[in-house]
Design a protein around this nucleic acid. Structure first.
Lengths: 253, 253
DNA sequence: CGGGATTTTGAGGATACTCAAGGTAAGTGG
DNA sequence: CCACTTACCTTGAGTATCCTCAAAATCCCG
C-alpha cells in the first residue's frame, strides 16, 4: 500500500494532523502499482490480461473541486477511482443539489452507460482515476467474460446501495440518516484498509446535507449532539466513533 | 392486445367504471401471445431463440396482495412482469416501509441477483409473470449475448430510475413529489400503450405515501389540493390530468 | 343495506428548515 | 509574523412543512 496516495481515505494515525491538499504524484505505470487493483472491477482480469486493459486506460489526476464530467455531457468515458474521493450529484433547475454518492478507490463510474451523463462528478480530495474510452471499454468487455461478470456484480452492488439510500431518505429521521451514513461509510473505508473507529469526512457539511436530504445546520446539530453525548468525537476532517453500538442502534436497521 | 390482461394498467375509456379485481386467466402458451413481448428483456431474443427461453420460463399468476418473494428469501428466481402491477418494498425492523418502486409489464426483477432478495415483491393488482430459475437464466444469458446486452440496458434504466427517486426524496417538497411521480408513471404507462391523460393508480394511498416518503394524509391532501385547483380530476383507481403543463411545472425539473 | 376498510378532512404539534449571528480555521498580503 | 479576509462550521431563535391524532365521509363487498 502507498499511503501517500489517499491520505484522506486511509485514516491511519495520520488523521490527527491536517491533510495536505495535494498528494505526491504517482508514477503512471500500468495497473501493477494501482492501489485499487484488488478492489476494482479490474480485478476480474487475470494478471496477464491486464496489459490490454492498461493499454486503453488513461491515468489522470484531479485537484479538489475539479470536475471529471458534467451532467449532460456526452458520456464518452468510464472511470475507475484509484485514490481520493469523488462526489456524484444532480442539480435541479433552481439550484437544489442532491449528492447521489461519494465514490472511493475501486468504485466504478459508467456501469449504466447512457448517451449522456446523468450527473456531475467532482473531486472532493485530490483524486486519481483510470479513464477508459467508453467504446474501447465496451469492446474489451465484450471479449472478456470475466470483466462482464464483474461489471454485473458492481452494478448489483450499486443498485443495492441506491436502494439503501432510498430507504434512508424516505423513511429515516435526521439522526438516523447521519448514523446510518457514518456506519456505511465506515464499512466502505474499512474494506479499503482504513480503521473502523475513525471515519474520514473530507467532504463539507454542505455535501453531507445534500447527500442526506437535510440542511447544513441540521447535519451540524446532529453531529454536535452525538459528540456531546460521547457517541462520536469530532476530529479534523472526520469523526472518531466512541460508542459504536450506540451509533449502530441510532441507525435503525 | 388483450385488454383483459391488465385492466388497471391500460386505462382505456374503461377507467370510469370500477375495475374487476380478477382478470380472466390467460392461456399459458409460450412467449408468442405475451403482452410484454415488445417491452421485456425478452425482446432481445430473435423469435427463433424464444423457444429456449419459453422452455425455462414458467408463467404464473398472483392475486392482489399475494407475494412473489420476500425480503431475505433465497433468490432462486428472476421474473418478468407480463401484466398487472407489483410493489417492491423494504421493511425496517420497527415496521416502517419504503416502497422502492411499482413494476409494470415488461419490467424485470433480478437484474442484480444477490444470494437473497433485498426486498419483498407483492402483487398490487392481479399479476402475471414469467418466472425463470435463476441458474437456468444465468446460463441462458451466458449463451445469448443479445440477452446480456439487454439486461445491461435494463440495469442502466433501473439505476437511473433509482437515482431519480433519490433526488425526489432528498430534495423535493410533498407537492413536487406527487407531481413528479404522476408524470413519471404517466410516461411509463404511455410507453405501454396507455393514454397520457388518465393515470391508473391501483395502489393504495398508503402505498403512494410509502413510496414518496410521506404520510397517507399528506398524499391525500396534496391530491385533494391539485383536484380543487383543477390540475387533476380524481377518478376511481386513478387520476385524470386536466392541466398537464401545470403538473409539469409543479414537478420541478 | 350494513359493516369494514380506505380515504378525506381538521386541529394541533414536532421535526427539520430559515434566518441570523458568532466562532473557528486556513489563506493572503502587508 | 500578524492583521485581515474568506470560507466553513456551530449555535440560537422563530417558523413552516409535514406528521400525529382524531373523526367524518366514502367506498366496497357481502
Amino acid at each position: 500500500m502507498t499511503p501517500a496516495l489517499a491520505p484522506a481515505l486511509l485514516p491511519t494515525p495520520a488523521l490527527g494532523q491536517r491533510l495536505r491538499p495535494h498528494a505526491a504524484a504517482t508514477p503512471l505505470t500500468g495497473c501493477d502499482g494501482c492501489p485499487a487493483r484488488a478492489l476494482a472491477v479490474c480485478q476480474a482480469l487475470a494478471d496477464g490480461e491486464l496489459d490490454a486493459f492498461g493499454d486503453i486506460g488513461d491515468q489522470q489526476r484531479f485537484a479538489p473541486k475539479e470536475t471529471l464530467f458534467r451532467q449532460g455531457d456526452d458520456a464518452d468515458a468510464v472511470y475507475t477511482i484509484t485514490s481520493g474521493m469523488v462526489r456524484l450529484y444532480r442539480l435541479l433547475s433552481d439550484g437544489r443539489r442532491q449528492i447521489l454518492g461519494f465514490l472511493l478507490p475501486g468504485d466504478f463510474i459508467g456501469l449504466a452507460p447512457d448517451a449522456r451523463y446523468a450527473s456531475t462528478a467532482e473531486a472532493v480530495t485530490p483524486v486519481g482515476v483510470c479513464r477508459f474510452d467508453a467504446h474501447a471499454y465496451a469492446a474489451l468487455a465484450e471479449r472478456k467474460p470475466h470483466l462482464l461478470a464483474s461489471l454485473r456484480r458492481a452494478a448489483a452492488d450499486e443498485l443495492a446501495a441506491a436502494q439503501d439510500h432510498i430507504v434512508l431518505l424516505g423513511r429515516r429521521s435526521a439522526e438516523e440518516r447521519v448514523a446510518a451514513f457514518l456506519i456505511a461509510l465506515r464499512g466502505r473505508l474499512a474494506r479499503r484498509g482504513g480503521g473502523a473507529v475513525t471515519i474520514a469526512l473530507p467532504m463539507s457539511r454542505q455535501d453531507l446535507a445534500d447527500h442526506l436530504g437535510l440542511t447544513i445546520e441540521t447535519v451540524s446539530r446532529v453531529i454536535s449532539r452525538l459528540a456531546r453525548e460521547r457517541t462520536l468525537l469530532v476530529v479534523p476532517d472526520g469523526v472518531r466513533v466512541l460508542d459504536a453500538p450506540r451509533l449502530q442502534a441510532l441507525a435503525a436497521a
